[in-house]
Design a protein around this nucleic acid. Structure first.
Lengths: 115, 115
DNA sequence: AGAATGTGTCGGAGATCTCCGACGCGTCAA
DNA sequence: TTGACGCGTCGGAGATCTCCGACACATTCT
């Protein structure tokens, strides 16, 4: 129960999916479990890990338990990534230019989609 | 042995440290191992994991093996983080204002330099 | 050639993860 | 109160991780 570091919490695809499912707003545990074709205990345990990592927050509401996203700890990952970001951007600069030109003729149509 | 996803590769603090140690440039395995008070086989195995994740590249050179940073796969993590980034920035807006005001009275070196 | 150096790989021990079925506890409806 | 529902926790099985000492292999030096 001590704590879980954010990186380990993010290492599991189910947990990443749970966080994605919470972007739109709080959801009860059962609803989240239904989306993963996993047993409820398994999802419950994943949620507990996310809670220990400080990435979600429990709100008991009636006989449901709503989970809220708490994305602040993700900032640590973003910060860690930062020095590398410059690096990979530099290496991908040429490719970026090409892609920019292609999407330039397509306009800047942003679409939001989960992976 | 197929491949390792970037998130799992990043879940271990030693592996993150290895990547950090490669930012300044390629280094031989032994030098990297010395910085971690870990046995050589352990570091070697961590490097193998990073290699399977596509995060480093081996360059045999004499009787050394230089490891090069290959940060492109980290872009996946950055992309995944993106939708959350907006979220946590919004939530930290108020705190940001307070901090800005504090550092404002501290000196005049507070300049918001975004990339 | 023979010795020394730099590294990966093998074999195994111990810890940790992931998942499940069964159960207990609290909440809501009748 | 009694029963149905939502959900966490317990106990355990199987897989995976992390680490080490010992060994093998290639390169370099003497």
């Amino acid at each position: 129960m001590p704590t879980v570091d954010v990186y380990s919490a993010l290492a599991n695809p189910v947990r990443r999916g749970l966080l994605e499912g919470l972007i739109d707003g709080p959801r009860p545990a059962g609803e989240l479990a239904g989306a993963f074709s996993l047993s409820r205990p398994a999802v419950s345990e994943h949620l507990a890990v996310l809670k220990r990592a400080g990435l979600v927050h429990e709100e008991p509401r009636g006989r449901h338990r709503y989970y809220h996203l708490r994305p602040e700890p993700l900032a640590e990952v973003g910060d860690w990534l930062h020095p590398f970001e410059h690096y990979w951007r530099a290496r991908m600069g040429a490719l970026r230019d090409v892609l920019d030109e292609i999407s330039d003729s397509d306009s800047d149509k942003a679409d939001s989609g989960a992976s």
